[in-house]
Design a protein around this nucleic acid. Structure first.
Length: 876
RNA sequence: GGGCGGGUAGUUCAGUGGGAGAACGUCUGCUUGACGCGCAGAAGGUCGUAGGUUCAAUUCCUACCCCGCCCA
């Protein structure tokens, strides 16, 4: 075995072994199921750190539950990602100097499918490199036959139930993507802008109203000015007619509660075709709707002289013209939220348009109840509130997209009588007039419409499959907090509506992976770190371990390369500890290992600590505290197993004259190491498999090894307490040696004075531990017969330590050291004493706390007096 | 404007109603037969500010300040 662990040599090998042997495969049986559906990444995308985190968490849960004996299904798949994928192919075409219109719909879709074939395997291959133990035989795609069938079924049912409708409404139009997007796909960014005050004269020319707006170009579509009905300032003007500057259009002054009298001038221009609030006001007052901006965000013919101008250019010209004609009253700086397209960051144009919507209110109600009643639980709990708040204020969902790549809306329009016919297959003739001139709606559905069905469409719905019956509802959904609204909420809605049952029992939300400076990783910033690069340089295990530790559920995680190095060092530590074990296990025979009666203190101690580790790791996994579970393993392996147990076991293996003791050491070493690898396997699947396979084991893979079960009868409190004493004595001697500059290679003489009989017996029996780990010769005494003249001094757990340093000791230095130590002890002692002197404390604090403080007082007092005595001797 | 998260060692972050932790960095030693991606030792923190509850608050409550995110 090489001295440095090389992940490249083992990771690929084991993944192939697992996959070829179908260890990820899940089949329906009579065990208890544990199922997860993978949040489907973009089919043509590539793995980023967010995926790496999300899938690492899922894999940990999956591997752990599988080892626990659940029938575990982790179902993978990919998403067609409408806008993103289409945009990429269009980009590709643009390089050839073509547009999608040059190809036409059909040819264009062929290109996208070809693109999907070319890049579709990339991300799933990358997930394999991460170690994802999902059932690839069940991999799905949101546009495969089954999922498409589910989409049509859902659309038709909702349509028949009146929960899908087509209507004119203000939608968010992205002039660059050339499609509508839903409300949650709009990102609101606070931007510095101006508030323009514009005077609208009355038609008789005697009066005027000044309105304030941040978007003066929309005035071309104004059809009214609204004031609050209770606003005294404008009461006399309500009902009068105004003349729109620049265009000369006449329009009324209306009163509406919507107006906030305290904002701007208290008078609002109304543009029903380009603002959602104005749209509502317009409906209430039967106002016309005048669209002045077209789909390229260029002013149209309704804009009169401004036709053909880009919206920003138009704004400039309008301001100039208003100013010249005396209508511009003033301009103020004003910060306001501007909607941007989440995909391309273009400023969204609210626009009147006829689209398909899902009526959300009635669907949201059961989804609210399911969470309120605890049938779905969010982890961490605080996300419940975010979810409920959104659900309770839900608005209808605009589901049509002006794209070609996606699930085409299954509705045909009759060109004769305008009837709309919803159907899975193209109807032959109009159900109303019998005409055969039918045309399918050109639009496709929002990508999230199909992902909303993911937990059941992937299991076969609308067919009644055994898988659907067995694995639904899934056990837990693991996803980022950024898509609670996009995805989690909609899955809950559709699961409850179509399956009559929640889609998952728990939702485990994690944060975002940020760069070292705390910024979101993004292409435009170029601050992303490619997980594949990391896997190549540090190994998948290190990446996984780093992503899981030092971070708490739901919180964001900063990516630091130093932490990655730390994880790699940990892997290397495991590797070398195992190397040590394996080098000393060549003649190990588990069958003939001596029983418990042969165990040394160190054996009993490490076995007990291992049990504690089993208990804690399992407990933390149970509560989704994966970072804490990983930390427990890190500390157990590095500190207890490597730094103490291995050191203690060395002499028994190297130059053990006692064959039985050697066999015993081998047995404990092998068993603890194997068990620890099993506990660590969900986190670091590759290195643990490699080591496990080299150790004596049963079964074909660590993946199928039973999860270690906590056995309280193997906890040994006494061994732990006794080891604690020895460890502290050792640490104390090491400290003295280091402080007094005793060369590390030199064996020191140490006198231990122990008055307590039990402790003395303990040290007597295991003095080899102290001699080995503190490099010394120990002389044990019940009391001090003669004060060592030149010696450094220390106290640990009632054990007085003298390290004679004839000729080496600097009395002044030793005095200074002891004084410093005494000061620290006395300070602490004072704190404890004052606590114990407090009547209320004694009366009200729990007895065990009081006992603990008393014990501490005794220990500290003893320590202080020992140091004081020593000081007196040295000074005298 | 509303909500949420964070403010703990030089840095990045865990954690807890009863003696402040880790990693990295720093300092001192070390060819100790698993590992220098290592070993041993050390220094370093009025746990954001001000109140309150409690025998006891870094931890619970209230207000405020700063940073970040989400929603309107």
């Amino acid at each position: 075995m090489p001295t440095i662990y090389d992940p490249r040599a083992v990771e690929e090998k084991w993944y192939r072994y697992w996959e070829e042997n179908k260890f990820f495969r899940a089949e329906v049986d009579d065990r208890e199921p544990f199922s997860i559906v993978m949040p489907p990444p973009n089919v043509t995308g590539q793995l980023h750190m967010g995926h790496a985190l999300d899938n690492t968490l899922q894999d940990i849960l999956t591997r752990w539950r599988r080892m626990q004996g659940y029938n575990t299904l982790w179902l993978p798949g990919t998403d067609h990602a409408g806008i993103a994928t289409q945009a990429k192919v269009e980009e590709q075409l643009a390089k050839e100097g073509k547009s999608k219109y040059d190809l036409g719909r059909e040819k264009f879709l062929e290109r996208v499918w070809a693109w999907k074939e070319q890049y579709g395997g990339r991300i799933t291959h990358q997930l394999r490199r991460l170690g994802a133990s999902c059932d690839w035989d069940r991999e799905r795609f949101t546009m495969d036959e089954g999922c498409s069938e589910a989409v049509k079924e859902v659309f038709l049912r909702l349509y028949e139930q009146g929960l899908i409708y087509r209507d004119y409404y203000i939608v968010n139009w992205c002039p660059r993507c050339h499609t509508t997007i839903s409300d949650i796909e709009v990102e609101h960014l606070d931007k510095p802008g101006q508030l323009y005050y514009i005077k609208y004269p009355t038609s008789d020319g005697r009066d005027a109203i000044t309105v304030a707006t941040t978007r003066p170009e929309t005035m071309l579509g104004d059809v009214a000015v609204a004031v609050h009905p209770g606003d005294e300032r404008y009461r006399h003007l309500v009902g009068k007619t105004l003349v729109l500057p620049l265009l000369g259009r006449e329009m009324p002054v209306i009163a509406d509660e919507y107006v906030d009298p305290s904002f701007g001038t208290g008078a609002v221009k109304i543009t029903p075709a380009h603002d959602p609030n104005d749209f509502e006001v317009g409906r209430r007052h039967n106002l016309p709707q005048v669209r002045v901006i077209n789909k390229d965000a260029v002013m149209n013919e309704e804009a009169g002289p401004y036709q053909g101008l880009d919206r920003w250019e138009c704004r400039k010209r309008i301001i100039k013209d208003l100013n010249e004609q005396g209508y511009l009253v003033k301009v103020e700086d004003h910060n306001h939220a501007v909607g941007h397209c989440y995909r391309c960051n273009t400023v969204i144009e609210p626009m009147l348009s006829r689209q398909w919507f899902v009526r959300m209110k009635p669907l949201a109600e059961p989804a609210i109840q399911a969470v309120k009643e605890g049938r779905i639980r969010f982890v961490p709990e605080r996300f419940t509130k975010i979810y409920l708040n959104w659900m309770e204020n839900i608005r209808d969902w605009c589901i049509s997209r002006q794209l070609w790549w996606g699930h085409r809306i299954p509705v045909w329009y009759c060109r004769n009588c305008e009837e709309a016919i919803a159907a899975k297959e193209p109807p032959r003739k109009c159900t109303c007039c019998g005409s055969t001139r039918l045309e399918q709606d050109p639009d496709v559905l929002d990508t999230w419409f199909s992902s909303a069905l993911w937990p059941f469409s992937t299991l076969g719905w609308p067919e009644k499959t055994p898988e659907l019956d067995y694995y639904y509802p899934t056990s837990v959904l693991v996803t980022g907090r950024d898509i609670i609204f996009f995805w989690v909420a909609r899955m809950i809605v559709s699961g409850l509506h179509f399956m009559r049952e929640v889609p998952f029992r728990e939702v485990f939300i994690h944060g975002l992976v940020l760069d070292a400076l705390g910024r979101k990783m993004s292409k435009s910033l170029g601050n992303g770190v490619d997980p594949i690069d990391v896997i190549e340089s540090h190994g998948a295990d290190s990446l996984r371990f780093m992503l899981v530790t030092g971070n708490t559920p739901g919180n964001d995680l900063r990516f630091h390369f130093e932490r990655l190095d730390g994880a790699r060092n940990f892997a290397n530590k495991i590797w070398n500890a195992s190397r040590f074990a394996l080098m000393n296990l060549q003649d190990y025979d588990p069958a003939s290992a001596p029983g418990r009666e042969a165990h040394t203190l160190a054996d009993r101690w490490i076995l007990s600590r291992y049990q504690a580790c089993v208990q804690e790791v399992t407990r933390f996994l149970d509560s989704y505290e994966l970072g804490e579970a990983a930390r427990v393993l890190y500390e157990f392996i590095w500190d207890e197993f490597c730094d103490w147990y291995i050191e203690l076991v060395k002499p028994r293996l190297y130059r053990g004259q006692d064959a039985r003791d050697r066999a015993c050491a081998q047995d404990v070493l092998a068993r603890v190491l194997r068990g620890t690898m099993e506990l660590l396997h969900p986190f670091m699947p590759f290195i643990t498999e490699e080591i496990w396979q080299r150790l004596p084991h049963q079964g074909r893979t660590i993946m199928q090894a039973p999860w270690p079960v906590y056995r309280p009868e193997l906890r040994d409190e006494r061994a732990e307490a006794e080891m604690a004493v020895l460890m502290e004595v050792i640490r104390s001697i090491r400290h003295i040696r280091s402080e007094m500059n005793v060369p590390p290679g030199k064996t020191a003489d140490v006198i231990l004075v122990v008055t307590d009989g039990h402790t003395r017996d303990l040290i007597q029996e295991w003095s080899s531990y102290i001699q080995g780990l503190a490099r010394c010769r120990v002389q044990l005494k019940p009391e001090l017969d003669r004060v060592p003249p030149q010696a450094a001094h220390g106290v640990a757990r009632g054990v007085e330590i003298y390290v004679p340093l004839a000729g080496l000791i600097d009395i002044d230095r030793e005095l200074a050291r002891l004084k410093k130590e005494l000061a620290a002890v006395e300070k602490e002692l004072k704190r404890v004493e004052s606590k114990l002197g407090n009547e209320s404390f004694l009366a009200k604090a729990p007895a065990e706390v009081v006992e603990k403080e008393k014990a501490r007082e005794k220990e500290l007092a003893g320590k202080a007096s020992a140091i004081r005595e020593r000081l007196a001797v040295l000074a005298g």
